[in-house]
Simulated scan of single mutants.
Amino acid sequence: MNGLAEFRRRTGSGRRILPALILTAVISIAAAQGATITVGAEGCDYSSIQKAIEAAKAGDILSVQSGTYRENLVVDKTLILRGRDTGSGMPAVDGRGVGSAIILNADQITLEGFVVKNAGHGKAGIEVNSDRNYIRNNLITENRWHGIYLSDSDENVITGNVVSKNRYGIWIPAGSDGNRITANELLDNSHGNAVDAGVNRWEMNAYDDLGEGVTRYRITGGPNVDERPKAATLQVEEAETKISTITVKITIPTPIIG
């Protein structure tokens, strides 16, 4: 009896193996995705985002409902933080005027769907001290110093955000390289929309100080140039509405007529 036949004899049937393997694969994928932890005022696992971060394990998803969270968040695990508009707008992280509102200290964090505001003097709405994070579809506004600040932080993707009414919009000092900053709106930042002394890629961002007829936007502080800039036109209220809107595409199957 060859090896395959002997294996089938011992396991009963080759047909029984495949469903077991598929089930094992599904369980493994589900485990890899991590648990979903809800945060909100009522009916959720936690009412504090920071408490949820402390309880979470790497790979977990924090689903944060509408509301204002007066906290200074330190994210020190690889997590997905996802804001959900549950009826009263995007959830807001309010830094209370002291420190940075959100600090990313672990690699490969996803931060999306938040209003981030009221960080303190010399600090940032979002302070990034790690690599390969994904920061998208947030409104970063009314912070006393930086909107987004990167420190020795490489290969991050910053996309689809509105950075408005801060002292400085996005600030990247030397030593942060390989980052991609694309399709963001930068406007009404009193001392400048963008400063970058690293080597990073800026593409298709919108700026309210883009001169008429200008086709290249030079980023202050270094050699970086946005080769495809746009003129920013959004106001903060419009931006929050735009970011909060979710478009759902429904496909109806064609009926089969016998």
Rank of each mutant, 00 (worst) to 15 (best):
Y46L: 02
A55P: 03
Q33I: 13
Q65W: 12
L73Q: 14
E42R: 15
R70E: 13
V64I: 13
D60K: 01
K51S: 08
S47G: 08
A30C: 13
D76N: 14
A32C: 09
A35R: 03
A55W: 03
G40C: 14
S66Y: 09
N72F: 08
A55G: 11
A56M: 02
V64P: 04
L79W: 02
Q33W: 13
C44L: 12
D45L: 02
A56H: 03
S66G: 06
V74S: 13
A32E: 11
S47T: 07
D60G: 06
I53V: 03
L79V: 02
T38G: 14
I37T: 09
G43Y: 12
L81V: 01
V75G: 04
S47E: 14
A41Y: 12
A52L: 02
T68V: 13
G34T: 07
Y69L: 11
V64L: 09
A30W: 11
G34L: 07
D60S: 03
R82C: 13
Y69I: 07
Y69E: 11
T36R: 06
K77F: 05
A41I: 07
D45I: 01
G67D: 15
I37A: 08
Q50K: 03
N72A: 13
K51G: 04
A55K: 00
S48C: 01
Q50S: 02
S66M: 06
A35P: 00
G83T: 02
G34S: 05
A31T: 10
G34Y: 06
T78K: 03
K57N: 10
I80W: 15
I80Y: 14
Q33S: 14
A35Q: 12
S48E: 08
S48Y: 02
G40V: 15
L73P: 06
A32V: 10
D76M: 09
D60P: 00
N72R: 05
E54A: 08
D45C: 07
L81C: 00
R70V: 06
A56P: 04
C44S: 15
I49N: 01
S48P: 00
A30D: 11
Q65V: 10
A58H: 03
A30N: 13
I37R: 07
K57Q: 12
S47Y: 10
V74N: 14
C44Y: 14
A52R: 01
G43N: 13
A30G: 10
T78H: 02
A32P: 07
Y46T: 03
Y69V: 05
I53D: 07
V64W: 13
D45P: 02
V75D: 12
S63H: 04
L62I: 07
I53K: 00
L73I: 12
Q50G: 01
K51T: 08
A31F: 12
